[in-house]
């Protein structure tokens, strides 16, 4: 009598499960994910975490050092700035503005890039070649230059600088999507669905997109770290977010005036930008090597 064998039952983990398993095996990547998670939590729940209003000025508490220094108080964990605003609250809200904006930007750029890239990849001939070359040219123009031009045309502000960064990020997504779609279109499973009568949209949504998601996640992490640095750099140069808005780069630029008196006003916002970008890069790198190991095993 055939018995149900409990232990010999084969279990095939799904590709995502295998990726997760490989990802978890790397401790550094996992720590990066936790750090990123903490910052994401800060960004989402800034009003709950921050002890003070980031814009509230307090003339009784100007330039108080951080709590670990001799003169610091625990009420102001990271000290206060030249206007008596609590640096910790400003950084928490700054994470919200900078990190949140970057995530939004990457999603917009990804949507645009995948759409245009797929169309360019499915087309062929002259049109594709023109799109190709124009994009490569656009990709070569430095972000800062695009930002300066857009600021000159539309004026300063976070939203205007977002346009500039989206413009700078999109070509990369277009490029990778186009290359990917072109190489996939030559494969036989696409030919099979085509013989079954699938139209272009069905080909894209059922056959190409599921295979492309991994590439998009990896490219998205690269783009996210670039977007973070660009948003804060423009804020720092006073071309992006304008001073009262707590944006990490703008906070850093504010602190620059009192850098010699109160170095924590420069060090801490910069450190948090650095930590977020580092966490994004570590997670992206871990993800990439997990995907690579999953394929090679």
């Amino acid at each position: 009598m055939p018995q149900f064998s409990l232990y010999e039952e084969e279990h095939h983990p799904s590709p995502w499960q295998r990726t997760w398993r490989e990802f978890r095996a790397s401790h550094i990547a996992f720590v990066g994910l936790i750090v990123l998670g903490v910052f994401f939590f800060f960004a989402l729940f800034a009003p709950l975490v921050a002890p003070f209003d980031p814009l509230q000025q307090n003339i009784n508490a100007l330039l108080i050092p951080p709590s670990w220094e001799l003169n610091g108080t625990i009420t102001h964990l990271f000290g206060t700035d030249a206007l008596g605003r609590d640096v910790f609250s400003r950084i928490i809200y700054g994470c919200r503005v900078t990190f949140g904006t970057s995530v939004l930007l990457v999603i917009i750029a990804m949507g645009l890039g995948v759409t245009i890239g797929t169309v360019a990849g499915m087309m062929s001939g002259v049109r594709s070649s023109i799109v190709n070359h124009l994009l490569d040219a656009l990709m070569a123009i430095p972000t800062l230059l695009i930002a300066i031009i857009i600021v000159a045309v539309l004026g300063t502000g976070l939203v205007n600088s977002m346009w500039a960064i989206t413009l700078a990020l999109t070509p990369q997504f277009i490029h990778y999507t186009r290359t990917f779609v072109r190489s996939e279109m030559k494969k036989e499973y696409i030919l099979a669905s085509r013989l079954d009568g699938a139209n272009a949209w069905q080909l894209f949504s059922h056959s190409i997109l599921p295979n492309m998601i991994e590439m998009l996640v990896v490219q998205g992490s690269v783009a996210l770290s670039i977007a973070m640095i660009d948003v804060s750099a423009l804020g720092f140069l006073n071309l992006g977010a304008q001073p009262p808005l707590p944006e990490l780069g703008a906070i850093l630029a504010d602190g620059l005036d009192v850098a010699y008196l109160a170095p924590w006003n420069v060090a801490l916002p910069g450190l948090s930008i650095f930590l977020i970008v580092l966490a994004i890069n570590v997670v992206g790198d871990g993800l990439r090597s997990a995907l690579r190991k999953r394929v090679s095993h």
Partner: peptide, 15 residues
Amino acid sequence: SMVGYSFPVFWLALL
């Protein structure tokens, strides 16, 4: 190299 790659350039210059 990962650490070096993650520095925002303006902050690094300030440091």
